[in-house]
Amino acid sequence: MSDVAVHPAPGAVHGHAAHHPALQHQFQTMSQQKEAAVLGMWAFLLTEILFFGGLFLAYALYRMWYHDAFVAASTSITLSWGLINTVVLIGSSLTMALAVRAAQFSQRMATVNWLILTMVLGTAFLGIKVIEYADKFEHHHVPGPNYIWEEAGHAAAAGEAAAADAGHEVSPDAANFQLHTQIFFSLYFTMTGLHALHMIIGLGLMTVITWMAWKGRFSSEYYTPVEMSGLYWHFVDIVWIFLFPLLYLIDRAH
């Protein structure tokens, strides 16, 4: 937390002309301070782009190598949950943008209300994600010792029946297919899990920002924390804008 913000009379403390209590020592003006914050936030988001970029790259490569298994696995997940979540998350980006706009107009209660609505939508997204994850556990689609891929399972069961008759081993094709669908679900859980973690962090940030807004810390002169939380939240939205087609959509017609 900024210690400057809690100085009772910054003009008196600094011994020069009174300025906005949120203006830090190293900056000349509020707009210079805001510009520095925006650039710093973008520098952080650049590292985030590459962080998620590595996972998208892994997804692209494994999809290229194990195309058939990826088609089978990605069409097994429920499209409607992903679609609802896309609408919910883009909606939360709108309410976040409106929270920043309300702060720009010094509308204290509107800022608080839009932030709370954004948190409600973010929580709804995570709730739907919980339903989806529970569904994966139910179907044994979570990578690990209990993983079962039905098609491969049937093939393996048929193979075992045949093996009991003829003494052959389980079809290596079915075993490989099971392994490759497991790679899809490993990437599914890593990417959506990391995305969900970012949303949980975003909800934490927004809780603090909403409290600050409630206390009347923001005005048209100073709303940088609201705007920075907005940049972060919109970035998380953008990650989902790419995750949705890649995980849920691209193999539906094939």
């Binding site: 509020m30 980006s93 720009q104 107009f105 048209s220």
Partner: peptide, 24 residues
């Protein structure tokens, strides 16, 4: 009234949201 930065008109936000929904 904002002292710093550009304030996006409400209509622009709503139009962008509508476009995002249509594209989805």
């Amino acid at each position: 009234p904002a002292a710093h930065g550009h304030v996006t008109p409400l209509g622009v936000y709503l139009a962008i949201f509508a476009t995002l929904m249509v594209l989805t």
